[in-house]
Design a protein around this nucleic acid. Structure first.
Length: 500
DNA sequence: CTAGGGTTAG
């Protein structure tokens, strides 16, 4: 008798499958799983769950659901992992309505008992699809139904609050979790620190960083460091940002493509393109691959400097490097073309990218509509506006305001008025730019009754808020804790080096 | 053995 028997047949397959997942080769994992099925390798519910997760990660929801059918067909019972994975899949595909239906029905018919992961997944998805109110409701509901939120749940809600600019609510929730004995981690602190930087509450950034490092013994990771590098870059403190990158290198928390892109952005916004390109070289020398974000930052900078040819060269270069341009890439280029008065060329470019099947969104339409109107092509703008809905996009408040101002500037008052009525019907109000343009026209021209009526509508709709407040710091160097404080936080390296 | 959260762009 042999002492060691060969491992079971399916063992190697499962090992390989999990290895593929670890390497994030989800597509390969899915086809490997189908091969396992054809080869009649024994498959259990866990393997099914892994396969379903891979489908969700590679945007193959239909296949994920057909695997659910496969689970039933083999007489297995889907578990909380299966359903949580499917819910996350739906949410990541912008199908939050479907996810909500699946979740509520499963609970209603007692198909499964959601756990803290399911709730957190659902809450995160709701936050990311613009249903933050529902997310908050579910957050309070889960507690009531006996499922305690954990660090992940709290971090998810805190992040959402931060993204909506509700810093103080986020801070309150942060205190609440500590009081309840749920310890925050890096994912909890990062979004709060980021938003505090954005609103120049640097004293609190300082306090939170100290609390995180000294009290909670959390040493900042790449995410937190990158947020700080970005914040320093954006507040004009390039030297501090660079020093922070040095600290990262010293600590072995090596800056990644995001960190360097942030630094590059800082140079771009100063118009120091040579320096920006030097950062790009650093990225390449460290064997990192520039991604779409990196390119978009550069493209935008060249467009702002009216160097459209350079921008277009870079755009073609992206394709050579195998990078799919994003909707932002195209928006940047269209904006660049319009800024140079080439709005007809922009329109042609728009049709080209549409023909190539690239994603279009409302910002693309806004950019083009604005460009066409500013270059006196109102009729082209009007027909494009009507095309918006045909392409499944709904004009929002900003889009309406752009077309209204376009009509006004080109003396197409009755059309402007019609759009204003439509906009109000849709529940949107005129913004501050439109209101002040109307006032300007009324003061400088013959008082057109249509303009007067439109202006009345602006006032009646209660549009007195300041819509486009621009934050102008009193002094560019007054914001931020400055290098001394920064150094104070990161100096005692030996103490902070402890990893958890 | 399988599921959840935080960083850069228009």
């Amino acid at each position: 008798m042999l002492k060691t028997r060969p491992l079971p047949y399916d063992f190697h397959f499962n090992q390989l499958l999990t290895a593929l997942v670890r390497m994030k080769h989800y597509n390969v994992a899915v086809s490997f799983f189908t091969d396992m099925c054809t080869l009649s390798v024994p498959i259990d519910i866990i393997t099914f769950n892994i396969a379903i997760n891979c489908c969700c990660h590679s945007n193959r929801l239909d296949y994920a659901f057909s695997l659910l059918a496969g689970i039933f067909k083999r007489g297995f019972v889907p578990d909380v992992f299966t359903y949580t994975t499917l819910i996350r899949g739906l949410l990541s595909q912008d199908k939050s309505a479907e996810a909500r239906i699946l979740f509520t029905n499963l609970v209603k018919y007692k198909e499964f008992q959601p756990n803290v992961v399911t709730y957190s997944t659902m809450i995160n998805g709701l936050c990311k699809t613009g249903h933050a109110d529902m997310a908050l409701w579910l957050f309070r509901f889960m507690e009531k139904s006996g499922c305690k939120p954990n660090t992940v749940t709290y971090s998810t809600i805190i992040d959402s609050l931060c993204k909506r600019g509700l810093v103080d609510d986020a801070l309150n929730l942060h205190s609440e979790m500590i009081e309840k004995g749920i310890l925050p981690n890096g994912c909890t602190y990062s979004p709060i620190i980021q938003v505090l930087c954005n609103v120049n509450r640097w004293g609190e950034v300082d306090r939170l960083l100290k609390q995180m490092i000294d009290d909670m013994k959390i040493s900042p990771d790449i995410h937190t460091f990158t947020i700080l590098v970005d914040a320093y870059s954006k507040s004009g403190k390039l030297d501090d940002a660079k020093r922070l990158i040095e600290i990262m290198n010293e600590r072995g928390k090596y800056p990644d493509i995001v960190t360097y892109s942030s630094l590059m952005q800082a140079y771009c916004s100063r118009g120091e393109m040579d320096e920006a390109l030097a950062v790009l070289n650093t990225i390449r020398s460290k064997k990192m691959t520039p991604n779409c974000y990196t390119y978009n930052i550069l493209l935008d900078a060249y467009c702002r400097e009216l160097k459209l040819d350079t921008a277009m060269d870079l755009y073609r270069n992206m394709a050579c490097e195998g990078l799919e341009p994003t909707v932002e890439t195209h928006s940047i280029l269209l904006h660049g073309l319009c800024r140079l008065g080439k709005s007809v060329e922009a329109l042609a470019f728009f049709y080209k990218i549409q023909g190539q099947g690239h994603k279009l969104d409302i910002v693309i339409y806004r950019t083009l509509l604005d460009g066409l109107c500013k270059n006196q092509y109102v009729d082209k703008a009007l027909s494009l506006f009507h095309l918006t809905r045909c392409n499944g996009l709904i004009p929002d408040r900003d889009t309406y305001n752009i077309i209204i101002r376009g009509c006004l500037r080109n003396k197409r008052y009755s059309e402007a008025c019609k759009f204003m009525d439509k906009m109000v019907d849709c529940g949107f109000l005129a913004d501050a730019f439109t209101t002040s343009l109307l006032q300007h026209l009324l003061l400088s021209e013959v008082q057109d009754p249509i303009l007067l009526a439109m202006h009345q509508k602006c006032l009646h709709s209660g549009n007195h808020e300041e819509n486009h407040r621009v934050h102008i710091p009193e002094d560019i160097n007054s914001g931020g804790p400055g290098f001394t404080a920064l150094y104070g936080i990161f100096k005692p390296k030996e103490d902070n080096l402890c990893e958890s």
